[in-house]
């Protein structure tokens, strides 16, 4: 499947881009993270602490074990600091 993958805040800085198109066979968000980490050091480093990682699937905040199903967009970011 083809996914739009977005990165925000320090994840964006560590990976060096805000958005990319990814071809993946991953079943869950966690599987996708494992795939990305295996690609290059900068991904491995950015995703090294999953306790500081949040994800949204098609713009909704979800746990990392959520199946990708037929999602089109996955976003990764640190805990939010709004308000």
């Amino acid at each position: 499947m083809t996914l739009q993958v977005l990165y925000f805040a320090w994840l964006r800085e560590r990976i060096g881009q805000g958005r990319e198109t990814v071809e993946t066979e991953a079943e869950t968000i966690a599987d996708l993270i494992a795939e990305l980490r295996a690609r290059e050091d900068r991904y491995d480093l950015a995703f090294s602490d999953t306790s500081a990682l949040r994800a949204a699937l098609d713009q909704r905040l979800v746990p990392l074990d959520t199946p990708l199903a037929d999602a089109r967009e996955v976003a990764f970011f640190p805990p939010m600091t709004g308000g």
């Binding site: 925000f8 805040a9 949204a56 905040l61 970011f77 640190p78 805990p79 939010m80 600091t81 709004g82 308000g83």
Partner: peptide
């Protein structure tokens, strides 16, 4: 809710 659930990040 805004503090922890609104997708904003401050630098």
């Amino acid at each position: 809710y805004l503090k922890s659930r609104a997708p904003f990040w401050k630098k």
